[in-house]
Amino acid sequence: MLSFLQYLISGLSLGSIYAIIALGYTMVYGIAKMLNFAHGDFIMIGSYVIFTVVTTLSGGSIPGLLVAIVCCTLIGVTTERIAYRPLRGAASPLAVLITAIGVSYFLENLALLVFGSDTKSFTPVVSWSGLVLADGKLRIQGVTIITIIVSIVILIALQTFVNKTREGQAMLAVAQDKGAATLMGINVNRTISITFAIGSALAAVAGALLCSAYPSLTPYTGAMPGIKAFVAAVLGGIGSIPGAMIGGLCLGIVEILSKTYISSQLSDAIVFGILIIVLLVRPTGILGKNIQEKV
């Protein structure tokens, strides 16, 4: 029973990381209506920035995280400006998706060139060793607790931002109808830029937490978590902020439990199987809204 609890907690921790990534995905998808395939690679870039600040410049974890947030925000906004914005309103819906894949490819190979293909061992951002409960039978790592707390704080902050501020309301308006939002005097380009900035900043935070929990860093570190976080966003209902949280947590728990009780090789297959089932049974996800296609 205690070991099950232990696995459940590590599932929650992984799920919280997925949730933070999925929040970035879901905001960008909801507002810009595009799948930012490179989102996972923003995580990887953020982690490399922290790694460089901590190891090469010996600057400490917190400054490293701050620098990473700034870098990722800049990269996210620049990517949107250079690669995605020109393609807004392109005739083929595939154009922007393929471009996003190109950006992902670009970032991975850039990291390969700059940092090399060898695995870097990441110094965890959280140094707290954690709690020991039930006479040492239940050990909760510090990074696990911090991850869960951070994800809840981010969720509340984002919900407040979207529902209470003018910028947040502008995002909701753009998500609903770009043309009408423009007529209401909303600067659509600015709003989408802000969305990318927030999403990319969250990617940096997720990178720090991901690499603290699993401290090996390669240029491909972000790709798989990025795709799984998209699965989480779809599971929760794309475009919905609480949905991303629920989807992320569900996915993390399923992944850890299937790794433990079924097969470690098949856990990815099970996670992707969930995506397929969700899309077939309830394409709008757990909390998504149903939108009818119009001619």
Binding site: A83, A90, A95, I98, T99, V103, F106
Partner: peptide, 19 residues
């Protein structure tokens, strides 16, 4: 690979961007 990626992005924008 880096060059492929840049060419890919550039080609998509040149071929598909409305502008």
């Amino acid at each position: 690979m880096l060059i492929y990626a840049i060419v890919l992005i550039a080609m998509m924008i040149i071929n598909w961007a409305p502008a």
